[in-house]
Design a protein around this nucleic acid. Structure first.
Length: 814
RNA sequence: GCGAGAGUGGCGGAGCUGGCAGACGCACCAGACUUAGGAUCUGGCGGGGAAACCCGUGGGGGUUCAAAUCCCCCCUCUCGCACCA
């Protein structure tokens, strides 16, 4: 042990030793329970950033802690290696996406190792490897067989100048990121995964995700967006056809005074004679401020009231949701209200608040509204349904509609099917062929993987680079052996990350995506940790995949992630770290200057993991000082080869012993409860402060001191593993601290003989006195009343009440 | 607008089922050691006041012996969704 703490030498030494002994290599011992600790794998963008450091430090603490608690811990890492930046780099720097990606991986892997993260790299997953993406293709085929993968026309962002498809993030203020041309929409045939088939289960199971943050669950529920209502047909006056609308408020049906169609509705083209005005309206769809519409000149019949009502086309009605047509009830829907006001359409109230019984007898025309009344209430002017309360009316009217054959009860979801086609090179090729005679043909399972060709050029112009590779494009149909051409779209990279956690469960398997028994043992992930930005997409897609794979009989679990921790962002100077703001902290610099242990410690200490972390250079120094302090203590006492004593004792070392046990308790509880490492580290600092100021008097004191120091080092080890191992060795242990069991606290040793009693008078703090811990309530009362200070205050006044809270305080009311 | 979360010293943040507000760290101040200190150590550190004490957890009410914590009203900020019928 060196006299001065030098993080560089210590960390290099232990990283080397850990590697030599393969200490993080997974060992499964049958008698131990399992724990699957997973952090979201990174995109290999080049270098890690502080967000990664924080994310992986949190995960590493949990993994190390669980290992010390006796679990078999699976703690893997890998690379979300497909994606657009690699292709951009190829265009810009003329380097192949593959090379760029692998070089980044090599560098970032070095950085992660340098942080001392306890990964079993044996299970590393790299999604751009054919061995991995082969299984994306295989899952795609399985889904295709079950009708869960299908093709349909859908619009994409299109740059007319580059003649290429753009991802959403490549469209900046409606312009192409490369040439500033105006981006247009273009219809293309694309592949979709039928996630909507699982909408109900994905929604229902949200309520079983007890280990997830409430807000993530809410976001998922909102995203799925279930609503129950009815579809009703409105006959068009003088035509055969009808308009089918969807509503959740069938109780307001009598108040429907017009019908609104989406501009893209098939009937809109037929009903509107002036196609120019319709096109103009289509262009006004992104206008949210002002509602606009075109009257079709046609009328519909309200199926319940029999009223003849106008049919409009409105720019706020969406074709993608429901039936693309709505019944407009301006009295009870603010949007319809605004629209009706603008175009002078009738407003007919049919619901009145329950609290206003006098309104029930009034005629609709006599009720004046300032805005729509959107709440539920009592029906008026609604024929046989008048007088019913909304919930009952909904039920009755729905039944009536079904009985009369006017429509049916329906459930709608906001959730759309997942479009996975990307007109890109650096992704998983979709295993589909187009044969001149057989049409759409799937690639045979035995022919998987469909490998990305290497010999392509990256210009950023024209279609997907894959469409220019004849070797890739031209193939034979497996059915008729005739000429066929390959699908050139690749898969959304969210496909890659939707099942990678399963691939980790078994070591590289050539014949299957993963072994069912291995997945059965490890799944679900016990603790998943990552950024809140994935609250919906990644986490929803992973849940979807898990359910599909369950239905394919590949796994047993219905949900992939039992517990989810969404860590906050790393903030500096009030903003998220970014190059443009110039407030980036470079992890390499940090590690070179202070070491990995200090970097980790600060990230964990500065705030609880789920909250944003405010970066402070000075705060980092505080963490560094703390480690130096611990170093100094061990340096000072390590020569004292005393034995350890942890049992309750009397005498000068008694408070230190108690503090040590208290600290074990606090740190352990923080670990178990909510991973509030900031308070765990704070209490560890308290213990270290107490050790530092302790003055051992005799042999006995040294035993306790030794116990305190060793405990502090053990408790420190998940946070700052290198220095902990070094100090552990310096104290004469031959076995690594990684092998040490997590300490237990002794309740008996925590209990103090004497406690401080707070004395309040009328709820105000007046004095504190030391009393024996086991004093009875009556004795406490007497002791308080006998107190000099108290007597001054009472001074002959009448005692109204005395409240005694044992172990805490006395409140005397006068 | 809807949904979720948060407002505590100069700053990051502690405060368990209502029971000593401000743990721990940073910054700051004073002192010690020192040729020196941006190293280290010791002490102090919410505001007011000489003191006794008083006032303090976004604001205003309330419940209680006792409220940062529970209830009602309001304000501000962050995030997510946003014409989803």
């Amino acid at each position: 042990m060196q006299e001065r703490y030098n993080p560089q030498t210590v960390e290099e030494k232990w990283q080397r030793r850990w590697a030599e002994k393969s200490v993080f290599r997974l060992r499964i011992e049958k008698d131990r329970p399992k724990f699957y600790c997973l952090e979201m794998f990174p995109y290999p963008s080049g270098k890690i950033h502080m967000g990664h450091v924080r994310n992986y430090a949190i995960g590493d603490v949990i993994a190390r802690y669980k290992r010390m608690c006796g679990y078999n811990v699976l703690h893997p890492m890998g690379w979300d290696a497909f994606g657009l930046p690699a292709e951009n780099a190829a265009i810009k720097h003329n380097v192949h996406p593959s090379r760029w990606t692998y070089e980044n991986i090599a560098y970032m892997k070095k950085q992660l190792t340098r942080l001392g993260l306890s990964y079993d790299w044996q299970r590393e997953v790299t999604t751009c490897e054919p061995e991995y993406y082969k299984w994306n293709q295989w899952f795609f085929l399985k889904m295709y067989e079950r009708g869960l993968a299908y093709r349909k026309a859908s619009s994409v962002n299109w740059c007319p100048s580059c003649q290429t498809v753009l991802a959403n993030e490549q469209v900046i203020d409606g312009l192409c990121w490369r040439c500033d041309s105006v981006v247009t929409l273009k219809e293309l045939e694309q592949w979709f995964l039928r996630i909507t088939a699982y909408a109900e289960e994905l929604l229902e199971d949200c309520d079983r995700l007890h280990g997830w943050p409430e807000r993530v669950i809410t976001m998922q529920k909102n995203w799925i967006g279930k609503s129950q209502g009815v579809e009703v047909d409105f006959r068009i006056d003088g035509m055969q056809e009808g308009i089918r609308v969807f509503t959740t408020r069938q109780d307001t049906l009598y108040g429907a005074t017009f019908v609104s169609l989406a501009a893209a509705h098939p009937l809109a083209k037929i009903l509107v004679k002036d196609s120019k005005s319709l096109d103009a309206l289509k262009a006004r769809y992104d206008e949210v401020e002002e509602k606009e519409g075109v009257f079709t000149g046609h009328y519909a019949i309200n199926p319940l009231s029999g009223d003849r009502i106008p049919i409009w086309v409105a720019n706020f009605v969406l074709m993608e949701y429901g039936t693309g047509a709505i019944m407009a009830v301006p009295a009870h829907d603010q949007r319809d209200f605004d629209f009706a006001k603008k175009y002078g359409l009738p407003i007919k109230p049919v619901i009145v608040p329950e609290k206003k019984p006098e309104a029930r007898s009034q005629r609709s025309e006599d009720l004046v509204l300032e805005g729509a009344y959107e709440e539920e209430g009592i029906l008026i002017n609604s024929g046989q349904f008048s007088g019913l309360k909304s919930p009952n009316a909904k039920r009755e009217i729905a039944r009536f509609i079904e009985e009369k054959g006017l429509g049916k009860r329906t459930i709608n979801y906001k959730l759309r099917d997942w479009g996975i086609s990307r007109q890109r090179y650096w992704g998983t090729p979709i295993p589909i062929l187009y044969c001149d005679s057989c049409g759409i043909v799937t690639v045979a399972e035995d022919d998987l993987p469909v490998i990305l060709p290497e010999d392509v050029r990256f210009t950023g112009r024209g279609g997907s680079p894959l469409s220019e590779s004849d070797r890739f494009l031209k193939t034979k149909c497996p059915l008729c052996a005739g000429d066929a051409r390959r699908e050139t779209d690749t898969m959304d990279t969210f496909v890659d990350s939707s099942w990678y956690f399963l691939r980790y469960c078994s070591e590289k398997d050539k014949t299957r995506p993963f072994d069912k028994n291995d997945a059965g043992y490890w799944m679900p992930v016990d603790q998943y940790i990552g950024g809140i930005e994935h609250a919906v997409l990644h986490l929803l897609y992973s849940r979807f995949f898990t359910k599909v794979l369950r239905d394919l009989g590949l796994i047993e679990v219905a949900e992939p992630f039992k517990n989810l921790l969404t860590q906050g962002m790393v903030i500096k100077d009030g903003a998220k770290m970014s190059k443009s703001k110039g407030n980036v902290v470079d992890p390499d610099y940090l590690i070179e200057t202070y070491g990995a242990d200090t970097s980790r410690l600060f990230c964990l200490f500065a705030s609880p993991p789920e909250k944003d972390l405010d970066w402070s250079d000075k705060g980092v120094e505080g963490a560094y000082r703390f480690l130096n302090k611990v170093w100094g203590i061990v340096q000072k006492y390590r020569g004292q080869r005393s034995e350890v004593r942890s049992q309750k004792i009397q005498g000068t070392a008694s408070p230190l012993l108690r503090k040590t046990h208290q600290t074990i308790k606090r740190v352990t509880e923080d670990m178990e409860k909510d991973f509030h490492f900031n308070t765990a580290i704070a209490s560890l600092m308290e213990l270290v402060n107490e050790i530092a100021s302790f003055n051992p008097q005799g042999e006995e004191d040294f035993y306790t001191l030794r116990f305190a120091i060793e405990t502090a080092v053990i408790l420190l080890s998940p946070f700052a593993p290198h220095i902990a191992d070094e100090l552990w060795e310096a104290m004469g242990h031959s076995q690594s601290i990684l092998e040490v069991s997590w300490p237990r606290w002794d309740m008996d040793a925590i209990k103090a003989d004497e406690i401080e009693l707070v004395i309040q008078i009328n709820g105000k703090l007046r004095n504190r006195v030391m009393i024996p811990a086991d004093l009875s309530e009556e004795d406490i009362r007497q002791r308080a009343l006998a107190d000099d200070k108290v007597r001054q205050y009472i001074n002959g006044k009448e005692l109204k009440k005395i409240i005694v809270v044992r172990g805490r305080l006395v409140n005397i009311v006068i």
